[in-house]
């Protein structure tokens, strides 16, 4: 039950500001990408990510802040743990590694945001990310 959607969980303080800059600069990215803003990636859980796949997502990318620069201090450590546990669960369920990744973007860096999205989409589909 693949619906082809690519869900990108973006943290409010870093990755989302990258998305806003990309928007202001009218940078284009793959239309299958659905960014979802959360205050911190550390508030996600393996359950919500598994559910994203259950509902048919083609891929999920966790896009957060740079190491040691979490707005909440501890959030990116939680996010890393959530990513590790969820990756292992997905591997046990037979999902290839390319369908779930985690990456980081500096605040307000629209170009980096686009690059991370493109590289995830290309890894996923093997085709062009942005037009």
């Amino acid at each position: 039950m693949r619906n082809g959607k690519i869900i990108v969980f973006t943290c409010n303080w870093y990755a989302y500001t990258g998305l806003e800059t990309a928007g202001r600069k009218h940078l284009q990215y793959c239309p299958s990408v659905y960014p979802i803003k959360v205050m911190c990636l550390g508030k996600l859980s393996p359950g919500i990510i598994l559910k994203t796949f259950e509902k048919g997502a083609a891929g999920v990318l966790m896009l957060g802040c740079l190491p040691d620069e979490c707005y909440y201090t501890f959030g990116n450590r939680h996010a890393e743990e959530i990513f590790q546990v969820t990756s292992r669960l997905l591997r046990a369920l037979g999902y290839p590694e390319k369908r779930f990744k985690m990456d980081r973007v500096a605040p307000g860096d629209g170009d980096a945001w686009l690059e991370k999205i493109d590289s995830f989409v290309v890894g996923l589909n093997g085709d062009q990310g942005s037009s």
């Binding site: 359950g47 598994l50 559910k51 669960l89 369920l93």
Partner: peptide, 13 residues
């Protein structure tokens, strides 16, 4: 559901 519904979700998957 507890644990963010992870266990029920993997069962459905």
């Amino acid at each position: 559901c507890t644990h963010g519904e992870a266990i029920q979700t993997w069962a459905r998957m």
